[in-house]
Simulated assay, not measured.
Amino acid sequence: MAIGPEGNQRCGSCGRLEQNLEAKIVDPKTGEALGPGQRGELWLKGPTIMQGYLGDAEATNATLNSEGWLKTGDLCYFDQDGFLFIVDRLKELIKYKAYQVPPAELEHVLQSHPEIVDAAVVPYPHEESGQIPMAFVVRQPASTLDEKKVMDYVAKQARLVLNVAPYKKIRRVSFINAIPKSPAGKILRRELVNLALSGTQSRL
């Protein structure tokens, strides 16, 4: 799929592709190319794409296929007009039963609550489901939000506003003073997973 440089902005999109760059959305399990509106891994190809990792054939083969397509590891989709939307990183998807849940979608819902300052969603191990979405929430001062209110809010918003599938729900909540982030603002999910597994997180 090749998309020219023309292009107005579209809310929620990172825009259209640069000229001379090709892209396609691929089912990460089957390698099948997907159409507009379908979510999969973003593959890129063009003169500006790297040729590989110097001295590391294994890493190169894992990232580039034989035709020169770069596997970005990003879960994305194109709309009918060629605008690209990034959903999440594939490696960060939560494997709930037979489904994959993007943490960023649930974080967006959580952050829309007027009593929530910040939030992050991570996988929490579950015997029956494999993993369940767990939310770390920073509340506004003097907020009375509890675990049930947070989960009910997400379920309602997901169903009525965002049309999110029923399996995309928060199933565990912990309240925290601040979400750990890198200097670039990236959520340090591994720290939160470790905190959840340690059992020492605040639930006040």
Rank of each mutant, 00 (worst) to 15 (best):
P166A: 15
I187E: 05
K148H: 11
A142L: 14
E115W: 02
L192V: 09
V138D: 02
K169S: 15
P183H: 05
K186R: 11
E128M: 09
V109A: 10
P114Q: 10
L145P: 02
R172I: 03
Q111G: 02
A158Y: 02
V161Y: 07
A165G: 06
M151W: 04
A120R: 00
V173K: 06
E115M: 03
V109I: 13
A158V: 05
I132Q: 06
A155R: 15
L145Q: 09
S182L: 04
P125A: 13
V117Y: 00
E147D: 09
R189M: 07
E127T: 14
A178N: 08
D118Q: 01
I176K: 01
A142M: 11
P114L: 03
P123M: 09
V150W: 03
A135P: 07
N177C: 02
N163L: 13
V137A: 10
D152Q: 10
E128F: 07
A155L: 12
L192D: 06
L145T: 13
M151E: 15
S174G: 07
D118H: 02
A184M: 12
V173G: 11
F136T: 05
S174H: 10
K169L: 14
E147Q: 12
P133R: 09
T144N: 11
H126W: 12
H108P: 00
L188Q: 14
I176A: 05
K156T: 10
S112K: 06
G130Y: 13
R139P: 02
E191I: 10
E127L: 06
V137C: 04
E191G: 00
E115N: 11
K149S: 14
D118N: 06
Q111S: 00
P114T: 10
Q111V: 01
R190H: 14
G130Q: 07
L160A: 14
P166K: 08
Q111P: 00
S174V: 10
Q111C: 06
E127G: 00
V121L: 02
V164R: 04
G130V: 11
S143L: 05
K156S: 10
H126G: 04
K149Q: 15
A165F: 13
E107D: 14
H108S: 12
K186C: 04
A120W: 00
K169D: 14
S182P: 01
K169G: 04
S182I: 01
A184I: 01
D146A: 03
G130E: 13
D118K: 01
S143A: 12
E191P: 00
A155V: 13
H113N: 07
S182F: 02
A155T: 15
D146Q: 05
N194V: 03
G130S: 09
V161W: 12
N177S: 14
M134H: 07
I187H: 00
F175V: 08
S174Y: 08
E107I: 07
